[in-house]
């Protein structure tokens, strides 16, 4: 067979296969490149005598441009990110998983297709539009409903983030429920279980891992979100005591301050260090989610 081909075509094929291989591993290259370049800009500051990793992570004082006493404490920013993500998850987990259960267990035919389309469209709304909604729509609503001074706070951003991460949860959660064999359902119903008992006692335990992965991916999405939280949190460096406090997140800090930090300055490098921190957090969350998902598939 091979003898009938010209040498050129054989080399052509070889070349293409190499091209495919290179593209195939490109994802690894990109992930490393991202880490490398972000690290490259941030790392020189790690060894600076003015920098202390402990203070970076535990001090609440964020004064990167002070004229008298520069302080690079990101604890308040981390607390901001965690509080917004946490409250967002409190809203998103029940609603997201509830919607996944509804779509997977109660809906059939047209309604099911319709809901899936809607949820997919919800996922497509750009984060800048969410931020704009938070600023112009949610702000006055929260002010009047809860009678608070400022509507740009943890709650505002959390609601937006919840709506943004629900689609991820619904689609992954639905897959997880779909993966539970129908025999479980048949057995439960044959035993006289109500649909509620079926879901609570049979489906949720069986789909546990997949649902956990869904939640984790939602968390990853929420931690990394930038524009919506930049506009909706109120952007105040603050360890929150209530959901009506304004906070600032790690992502928003980079977005707001990188523009004016001159290249190579300590402030600029610290912002890249925050980038590394974010990269690490989301990397771990995604890794865990992936292992959890793989766990089900191997079962």
């Amino acid at each position: 067979m091979t003898s009938s081909r010209s040498a050129l075509s054989i080399y052509g094929e070889k070349a293409i296969e190499w091209l495919i291989r290179i593209c195939g591993v490109s994802a690894i290259i990109f992930v490393f490149a991202i880490f490398f370049f972000v690290f490259r800009e941030g790392a020189p500051f790690l060894t600076d005598e003015k920098f202390s990793l402990w203070k970076f992570l535990t001090s609440t004082e964020w004064y990167p441009t002070s004229m008298s006493n520069i302080r690079y404490g990101t604890f308040a920013l981390i607390a901001g990110t965690l509080s917004v993500t946490g409250v967002a998850m409190l809203i998103a987990v029940p609603f997201g998983l509830g919607a996944a259960i509804f779509v997977s267990e109660f809906c059939t035919g047209k309604l099911r297709e319709f809901l899936k389309v809607i949820i997919e469209l919800l996922a497509a709304i750009p984060s800048i539009v969410w931020g704009f909604i938070g600023l112009t729509v949610m702000n006055p609503v929260i002010q009047t409903v809860f009678n608070v001074q400022v509507g740009l706070n943890v709650l505002n951003a959390a609601i937006l983030l919840a709506l943004m991460s629900i689609p991820v949860m619904v689609s992954i959660g639905e897959d997880a429920l779909k993966a539970v064999p129908d025999s479980y359902r048949e057995a439960a119903i044959a035993l006289g279980a109500t649909r509620w008992q079926l879901i609570w006692r049979a489906l949720l335990p069986a789909a546990k891992n997949g649902l956990l992965a869904a939640v984790l991916l939602g968390v990853g999405r929420a931690v990394g979100e930038t524009m919506a939280v930049l506009m909706a949190t109120g952007h105040a460096v603050n360890v929150p005591h209530s959901i009506f406090d304004s906070v600032r997140t790690l992502t928003a800090t980079i977005a707001a301050e990188l523009g004016e930090a001159s290249e190579g300055s300590p402030h600029y490098r610290v912002l890249f260090l925050i980038g590394i921190l974010l990269f690490t957090i989301t990397f771990i969350v995604n890794l865990v989610a992936d292992f959890v998902v793989k766990g089900i598939k191997n079962k």
């Binding site: 609440t60 004082e61 964020w62 004064y63 002070s66 004229m67 008298s68 006493n69 308040a76 400022v150 740009l152 930049l230 506009m231 109120g234 952007h235 105040a236 460096v237 603050n238 304004s246 600032r248 707001a256």
Partner: peptide
């Protein structure tokens, strides 16, 4: 030589 009080809403 002073700094701002932390917790202000730092707008973009």
């Amino acid at each position: 030589k002073n700094d701002f009080k932390q917790g202000s809403r730092d707008m973009n």
